[in-house]
Design a protein around this nucleic acid. Structure first.
Lengths: 127, 127
DNA sequence: TTCGCTGCAAAATATTTGCATTCAC
DNA sequence: GTGAATGCAAATATTTTGCAGCGAA
């Protein structure tokens, strides 16, 4: 696929690069409006799809019934505070051992995984 | 909360108990229709919500943009074949060590997690 | 010039809400 | 009898599709 450099696309991508945690389509649309880039929501969805399919974005679900997207960096997982909504990254590949075990015991070849942790962040645990 | 035993509720719960993998609301509605229990979809959603909130069901996401529900049994994770759609359970609690590490290093108390593996099942890997 | 990108309208899909009625306990 | 459950209609939220025009390379 041949991705072109358009104002909408680079604005969306820049926003995701600058975001510290995964954002949903609605947040992107609001951001673009606040910058007076009145990009149609369909364009946002199509760009998210194109960037995702080209491996530039990661797509995650946090049990909200919608997708969130983030700039693809090093492999990591999320700590999601169920009290304040704060999202932290934790780096590292913890699952290699498990995935090898799955391959042996289930004959299943793991290509990817999703792993999110829900709980209370440092601030909220003390309140 | 005080759950009453109604025909719709027990039909939905029975279906989930018998299902070998998590199902979505649409599958439940189709099943009920096939049994000539013409339960309204709103009733299905409300029952899923009530059963979930009472801890009788587990709610999961498989990257499809919708929820799936399953009868709450022993803690487990899923192997989702991206070729044929087959869903296998893998039992076990692999994440305790990681969650303790998270508590120490991030000050974050993990209450729950979601972990799904995507890849090729034994059948599909050989095709 | 040529595809890819965009906007608009509309549709599809998943889920929720208001309200009146019915039913389980 | 009372509060919970249901059905219907309508609404909301998220995401997708068709089509015509625009724009990047």
């Amino acid at each position: 696929m041949n991705l072109k450099n358009t104002p909408a696309r680079s604005a969306i991508y820049d926003f995701l690069v600058r975001s510290s945690s995964p954002v949903d389509a609605g947040q992107i649309i609001k951001f673009l409006r606040s910058k007076n880039l009145n990009t149609n929501k369909v364009t946002v969805y199509r760009n998210l799809d194109a960037l995702f399919k080209n491996g530039l974005l990661e797509r995650v679900e946090f049990g909200e019934g919608k997708f969130r997207y983030e700039f693809k960096k090093n492999h990591h997982h999320h700590l999601i505070c169920t009290n304040c909504g704060k999202i932290e990254d934790i780096s590292g590949e913890y699952l290699t051992v498990i995935e090898n075990k799955i391959r042996k015991e289930n004959g299943f070849i793991v290509k990817s995984h999703s792993l999110e942790f829900y709980g209370l962040c440092r601030n909220c645990r003390n309140n």
